[in-house]
Design a protein around this nucleic acid. Sequence first.
DNA 1: TGCCAGGCCGGGT
DNA 2: ACCCGGCATGGC
Length: 230
Amino acid sequence: MTGNPRSNDEHHTIGFYLQQIYNVLNGYFGELHWWPADTPFEVIVGAILTQNTAWRNVATAIEKLKEAEILTPEGLSRVEIDTLAALIRPSGYYHVKARRLKAFIRYLHAEHNGSVENLFHGDIWQTREKLLHINGIGEETADSILLYAGGQPVFVVDAYTRRILERHNLIKEKAGYGEIQSLFMTSMPQNAALYNQYHALLVNTGKMFCMKKKFCGVCPLSELTAYPLP
DNA sequence: TGCCAGGCCGGGT
DNA sequence: ACCCGGCATGGC
């Protein structure tokens, strides 16, 4: 069910449920301090490397880049693409991801003088559009960059977000990215710290309790499953 | 041992 | 405007 999970005597908005989910998860997990990275640039690299990939593998790949001392815009600019691919091999899809990293680096140097900070100077949504034009950066990656590297109030929607909302009957199966993002951004304060924590909470919940085949009974959200059905 | 992980692209309908 | 195959490693 989309928009309004109503019943005759309850008139909660979707925002009410999103807020309630946040409260429960925040109480359960506490402050998560995302994104796990030392610098904004590292966030961006991680965002590209983690596409459809377990974070553990990404962490290994990032370690390799650090050991090679090329985890900087200059370093990734300098390195041969085949060398780069070999280094990030543990993160999977390493040929495409090496290309994607290079594409971002080219953009960064061409448009922002190689400075990550310059990336976030202009209008957020204009920056988002530009990021989306880079090959290998889609909506989730762009938003992760804006939120976690740039501290911009943009909500990140990922597979876990979709799955959790779907299982709680808050969205329909085919809801689009922007549709889901709007639910959060129109019904909750547009606050970067809040979006940061909320997305982190959803990912943690997904990893632990909401796998594809596992509907876990001990999920902290279980107490909320009695949503009014359409 | 298959199935899955913090997607995205390009080609086809 | 969707739909799908391809891309790949490592953990359970």
